[in-house]
Design a binder for these strands. Structure first.
Ligand code: FES
Ligand code: FES
Lengths: 144, 144
DNA sequence: CATAAATAGGATAAATTTATCCGAAATAAG
DNA sequence: CTTATTTCGGATAAATTTATCCTATTTATG
């Protein structure tokens, strides 16, 4: 469904949120250990998230990645996915036609739209805060 | 969402169904032209569909691909997807945890399950016949 | 200012997916 | 039986995604 890069990006962002809520910056090393992902690759994905202003990076000694506490409740899962995988997952045709078009639909268009809208709805109505809370309370996990 | 191979496989199967319903066998060349896909790659995907008994192949002169007329109404979209992409799309964790597990869920598990079930439901309740009819009646298209 | 610690980013490699090529095997028809 | 036609399947190549490595740049601190 999502690319590996996107999976890592989502988990990394959640982990950063959990730590930022407790005023701790985290490094790519710490992140990749906690979410069980390749470190250098994860660092690259974090760069993309920084460029898209989903997370903030602080360079130099005592630096690391963080998210403004106040922003955690406003960041939606959709923003993370969009920063990494783009919007093809919402907008693309399920059978790969050049564009998904009501007027020139592929055979699965109507049925596919329902699923895609459900996904879009889910991504746009899930906040980083909700996800981070489940990690903090120990009801959800980021690895294994 | 689906791999290229799966997209080609679905469109190819629909095209074969349309033609089989009119007692015509079709070749990979004809198929790839009608669904706008690379010929040799499409042929490989057709082999997989034959192995999984979704379509039938007839070798030699006047051969080609076909689907038993009576079977067209019984083949579900899920069978095609499963033959090519496997069941990861139903069963895999949305964030790439080793297994999707109610007892050890990732942070998006509950919400992701809803979308995934919607997709499974869609794939298992869409028959090849429905898809082929939309092509025959000209309300849906296999390319562009 | 010097130093150590940390992210940024370019170059490169490995793995996977997508795509091509070609000879082998099968089959209908003459 | 021979020939033409057609799928099968292995080998290979190209493209994309995933992953690693190394140097440059930034920044806090002494
Ligand atoms: S045209 Fe294929 S999903 Fe809309
Ligand atoms: S554990 Fe991640 S989707 Fe179920």
């Amino acid at each position: 469904m999502f690319s590996k890069a996107c999976e890592y990006g989502i988990k990394a962002t959640i982990f950063i949120a959990v730590n930022s809520s407790e005023n701790r910056r985290v490094s790519p090393k710490e992140i990749s250990e906690e979410i069980d992902s390749p470190q250098a690759f994860t660092a690259k994905i974090l760069q993309a998230l920084v460029r898209h202003k989903v997370v903030k990076s602080v360079r130099g000694a005592y630096g690391g990645f963080e998210i403004d506490k106040g922003k955690i409740a406003t960041i939606k899962l959709s923003q993370i996915v969009f920063a990494i995988d783009g919007d093809q997952i919402y907008k693309g045709c399920g059978l790969g036609l050049h564009t998904c078009n009501e007027k020139h639909p592929c055979p699965v268009h109507d049925k596919f739209m329902v699923v895609r809208e459900e996904l879009r709805d889910m991504l746009e109505n899930t906040t980083l805060e909700q996800l981070a809370l489940d990690i903090k309370s120990g009801v959800a996990f980021l690895k294994i």
